[in-house]
Design a protein around this nucleic acid. Structure first.
Lengths: 113, 113
DNA sequence: AACAGTACTTGGCCATACATAGTACTTTAC
DNA sequence: GTAAAGTACTATGTATGGCCAAGTACTGTT
């Protein structure tokens, strides 16, 4: 059990939330998302992102269309579906609650210690 | 892929952070922790908590002593070790960063949408 | 034609949260 | 004094998501 491992665990689920948010802002493809995430200092590797996109696509949360590129292979541009939008709303609530619960516990800790 | 499942995923790692925080405030045993977590609306079941405690104990983050109870079997009272204290500090940083990154991404989303 | 760059894919590994069933001890009830 | 109820801890098996690493496929450059 090391810190690095726990850090990885902490990101579970949250990444999905962030990706859906990014897609909700307009059509983007994988590299766009990676840029966004990196800018927010949330480092993600391809091997994580692509399977995640496949998952949420198979779940009907997003859909994509192929768009040809001038510099390389064609790209998948993603956008949210109706189901995805609802799902994102649910995730927002979950995230807010989680943050609140955690703050409550850790705040109490700071006060007493 | 359903909402409930993602909610479970989101808690991964964070639970450990919360438990360590609770233990850092003074010696407690499992039921105390469950009460604390429930009060903060972070519902945890025994089957999750006990294995977690065993893990962090084996990792040297916490130690415990048996204390006899007047109403039932003896209890394991946990407290943080030096290593555990350092580890908790690392987790705090990780959590703060994660929240900040997520806020940054989701804020941007709200502004544009 | 060979090479580098970009975009996406795939298979295997690991750790955590959960469900469920089980063990062990103490007090209460009859 | 034995059975029942309650408390505390243990053990096993499942599912999931993030990561590593290797691989495929298309485009433009040299």
């Amino acid at each position: 059990m090391n810190l690095e491992n726990t850090q990885v665990q902490m990101r579970k689920g949250i990444l999905e939330y962030c990706i859906l948010h990014i897609i909700s802002r307009g059509e983007v493809y994988a590299s766009d998302m990676l840029d966004e995430l990196t800018a927010a200092r949330m480092i993600v590797v391809e091997g994580t992102l692509y399977p995640l996109l496949t998952r949420i696509k198979n779940a009907g949360l997003v859909e994509y269309k192929w768009v040809e590129s001038k510099s390389g292979p064609p790209r998948k541009y993603y956008k949210l579906t109706g189901i995805g939008s609802q799902f994102l709303k649910g995730l927002s609530d979950t995230w807010e609650e989680l943050v609140q619960s955690t703050e409550q516990i850790t705040q109490k800790s700071k006060t007493i210690v």
